[in-house]
Nucleic acid binder design. Structure first.
Length: 422
RNA sequence: GGAGAGGUGGCAGAGCGGUUGAAUGCGACGGUCUCGAAAACCGUUAUACCUUAACGGGUAUCGAGGGUUCGAAUCCCUCCCUCUCCGCCA
């Protein structure tokens, strides 16, 4: 959510931002309602002031056993007016919320402007693409041949876009979790196991609701429960409706959770392999920081994710998402794309975003300094890393001519010294 | 699932329907005293919104939302949450 003051006073700037995103919202209606809201508040508060004053007079009169019926009658009419205006104000607030919860964040000025991902800007590239003396295979062929990936049975048991991991594949998964969490711990992230089911307030706080409900799995039942699409939701909402001590910022969390996405509207996309599933696992890193530090924290957060790929020896590049490719809540996002030789392409493996105070306003997460200055914190997060896509990258980059797969050195201590699969 | 108790300021804890934004205590902050500290004493000690060039002024907030009333922390209704006991369960 953007501040009403910003929308009111930098209207043209925000209009430009919307244009760059290719988004359209009813900004004019918002401005009208905002003006009416303030006008109504002035009117109703004047009446309340009148009533409060009169109430004290009535109390004084009654105390001295005098007649107060004239004042009481007058206040009856004032009371009715107040009731009317308060009702109108309530409706305006509802209408405003229904508008502004759909207003996307304003993209940062450093983003390349463009309608889609073809305008993303490559910032840097790391690592050498592995050279093979044979034609490298895609991961689904490697994994199925090794008996560690099984899509057919997952489709039988659940449906399309699910997978089984067996044996060494499952162990590789487990090793990666420990490896990543250990790295994050030494970088100062607090390890957290959050709930995998959240309420609607939390999803509103991080920006998935109200606009993107169709992307979520909603549970049947009396309560509005949802499966989390990312640990960003429960972890960012840890501090919803809280005021954090500025001296305790930046606060950093790392969480390993499953993620559930309906993938509505992605029929036909990425149908092979482990790339786009309804359920996947991910280690997510989240930061709460002071506004003046968030851009620096954004860089270091991205570096923390990159460091994992470097340690795993997986070639990647970092791109800045263009204005049209940017997600709803984000002001700036770096995508890290890992090289997949089996598919001869760079593939998104991590998104590292700075939301500025957009989520903090929705979720009401504030800070307070020692000298009592307050405001909204800035929130950031990034995947570091998703398990499925990391396994994909390992299988494809470390595959051998004989169909086996070498285990990256940093993972071997987590796999009882096993050096290769197959 | 059944039975009960309770939600008031940073915390603890008062609060006959009428100067109660809210006693009191603790904590925190500032000051006096001291070489310094402790103790003692004095003072300060919420947030949001509206308004104002500013000083300031106003409104709201005692779990949430409705209602009664000229006036609600206080009365009524609904909901939420927490705790205790029983049952069930990994």
């Amino acid at each position: 959510m953007l501040s009403r003051e910003y929308l009111r006073e930098h209207t043209d700037e925000y209009r430009q931002a919307l244009k760059k995103r290719g988004a359209s919202v009813d900004l004019e209606r918002f401005l009208e309602l905002d003006a009416e809201r303030r006008k109504t508040i002035v009117a109703v508060e004047a009446l309340k002031n009148q009533r409060n004053t009169a109430s004290q007079e009535i109390a004084a009169l009654k105390k001295s056993k005098q007649d107060a019926s004239a004042q009481i009658d007058a206040m009856k009419r004032v009371g009715d007016e107040i009731k009317e205006l308060d009702a109108r104000l309530g409706q305006i607030e509802i209408d405003l919320a229904n508008l502004e919860l759909y207003f996307p964040n304003a993209p940062h000025e450093s983003l390349p402007v463009g309608p889609d991902e073809t305008h993303n800007r490559v910032e840097r590239t790391w690592g050498d693409k592995p050279a093979f003396g044979f034609t490298p295979k895609p991961h689904w062929e490697i994994g199925e041949a090794l008996g560690i990936l099984d899509f057919e049975r997952a489709t039988k048991v659940s449906g399309p876009r699910f997978a089984f991991l067996f044996g060494a594949g499952a162990k590789l998964n487990r090793a990666l979790i420990s490896f990543m969490l250990d790295r994050h711990e030494s970088n100062g992230y607090i390890e957290v196991v959050p709930p995998d089911i959240v309420n609607a307030d939390s999803l509103r706080g991080t920006g998935q609701l109200p606009k993107f409900e169709e992307d979520l799995f909603k549970l049947q039942g009396e309560r509005a429960y949802y499966l989390i699409p990312t640990a960003e939701v429960p972890v960012t909402n840890i501090h919803r409706d809280e005021t954090l001590d500025a001296s305790a910022l930046t606060r950093k969390y790392a969480a390993y959770t499953p993620c559930f996405r309906s993938e509505a509207g992605s029929y036909g996309k990425d149908t092979r392999g482990l790339i786009r599933h309804h359920q996947f696992e991910k280690v997510e890193i989240v930061k709460f920081t002071m506004p003046d530090r968030s851009w620096d924290e954004h860089e270091t957060l991205t570096n923390d994710a990159e460091a994992l790929l470097q340690a795993l020896g997986l070639p990647y590049r970092v791109v800045t998402l263009s204005t049209g490719d940017l997600s709803f809540s984000s002001a700036k996002t770096y995508d890290i794309e890992v090289w997949l030789p089996g598919q001869e392409t760079y593939r998104e493996i991590s998104s590292c975003s700075n939301y500025l105070d957009f989520q903090a306003r929705r979720a009401n997460i504030r800070y307070r300094t020692a000298d009592k200055k307050g405001g909204f914190v800035h929130t950031l997060n990034g995947s570091a890393l998703p398990l499925g896509r990391t396994i994909v990258a390992i299988l494809e980059n470390y595959q051998q001519a004989d169909g086996s797969v070498v285990i990256p050195k940093v993972l071997r201590p987590y796999m009882k010294g096993v050096e290769k699969i197959g």
